[in-house]
Simulated assay, not measured.
Amino acid sequence: MMQEEQEPDYRFTLANERTYLAYLRTSLACYAGGLSAVQFLDLGLDRWPARIIGLILVGAGLVTTAAALRRWQQNLTAMRRGQPLPVTRLPLMLAATIAIAGVVGLAFAMWR
């Protein structure tokens, strides 16, 4: 059975959009950080540590971009149907990924 959808209060729609844009800014920062690591980070050993860090960060950016769009759509649908907003693990994934990239970078910097 299809639930009737109503246009939510514009303030909630705009708040949802701001959250989506914040996730996109975060994904852009991951892209920039990953590409900068590959380009400029010199941790020796044929630069493979920099490539690993770059791969982790660019991968996180790609996942964040896709998940942000999905999250925005799910929130909008839930608001229109008067349902609770769905739970997301995206902030946890981002925090863990950035922490892993930082630990890898720190480990290789100290090892060198």
Score class of each variant (00 low, 15 high):
51 R>F: 11
38 V>K: 13
17 E>L: 11
21 L>G: 03
41 L>W: 00
85 L>A: 13
46 D>Q: 14
6 Q>K: 11
90 L>K: 05
83 Q>F: 10
51 R>V: 15
33 G>A: 00
39 Q>V: 00
42 D>H: 09
97 T>R: 07
107 A>C: 12
78 A>N: 03
38 V>I: 09
111 W>E: 07
87 V>S: 12
110 M>W: 09
62 L>D: 14
48 W>S: 04
11 R>I: 09
11 R>Y: 05
73 Q>N: 10
49 P>T: 03
12 F>T: 10
4 E>T: 15
16 N>C: 06
48 W>C: 02
15 A>D: 13
21 L>M: 07
100 I>L: 15
21 L>S: 01
10 Y>F: 07
65 T>C: 08
92 L>I: 08
67 A>N: 04
47 R>C: 11
80 R>N: 00
92 L>D: 09
75 N>W: 07
73 Q>G: 06
98 I>E: 06
28 L>F: 04
55 L>K: 02
110 M>S: 08
43 L>M: 09
86 P>I: 01
106 L>A: 11
10 Y>I: 14
104 V>W: 04
74 Q>C: 10
34 G>L: 02
83 Q>A: 15
30 C>I: 01
83 Q>I: 02
33 G>H: 06
75 N>Q: 13
99 A>C: 14
13 T>D: 08
63 V>T: 08
76 L>W: 07
19 T>C: 11
97 T>I: 14
45 L>W: 12
36 S>V: 03
88 T>D: 12
28 L>V: 07
54 G>L: 02
49 P>F: 03
60 A>H: 10
52 I>E: 06
35 L>C: 08
3 Q>Y: 01
7 E>K: 07
91 P>S: 04
104 V>G: 03
78 A>D: 02
31 Y>W: 03
43 L>D: 06
83 Q>Y: 01
11 R>Q: 13
37 A>P: 12
37 A>R: 00
60 A>I: 10
77 T>F: 12
75 N>Y: 05
14 L>T: 13
60 A>W: 02
87 V>E: 14
75 N>A: 06
62 L>M: 15
86 P>V: 01
21 L>R: 00
47 R>D: 14
7 E>D: 00
99 A>W: 13
31 Y>T: 08
84 P>S: 07
81 R>T: 06
53 I>P: 01
82 G>C: 08
31 Y>R: 06
80 R>C: 01
14 L>G: 03
4 E>F: 05
71 R>M: 07
36 S>T: 13
87 V>I: 05
55 L>N: 10
32 A>G: 10
104 V>H: 06
73 Q>R: 15
12 F>A: 09
23 Y>T: 01
73 Q>F: 02
98 I>Y: 01
12 F>C: 03
49 P>W: 00
5 E>C: 04
58 V>M: 13
100 I>P: 07
67 A>R: 12
28 L>E: 07
13 T>G: 04
12 F>I: 07
29 A>G: 13
62 L>T: 15
37 A>I: 00
69 L>R: 09
2 M>K: 12
5 E>K: 15
66 A>K: 05
51 R>I: 09
60 A>S: 11
61 G>I: 02
44 G>R: 01
62 L>I: 15
23 Y>P: 04
49 P>I: 03
15 A>I: 10
62 L>G: 15
47 R>T: 15
75 N>P: 02
86 P>Q: 00
81 R>H: 06
5 E>R: 12
38 V>S: 15
42 D>T: 03
60 A>R: 04
94 L>M: 14
100 I>K: 10
76 L>E: 13
46 D>I: 05
6 Q>H: 14
41 L>F: 02
84 P>K: 06
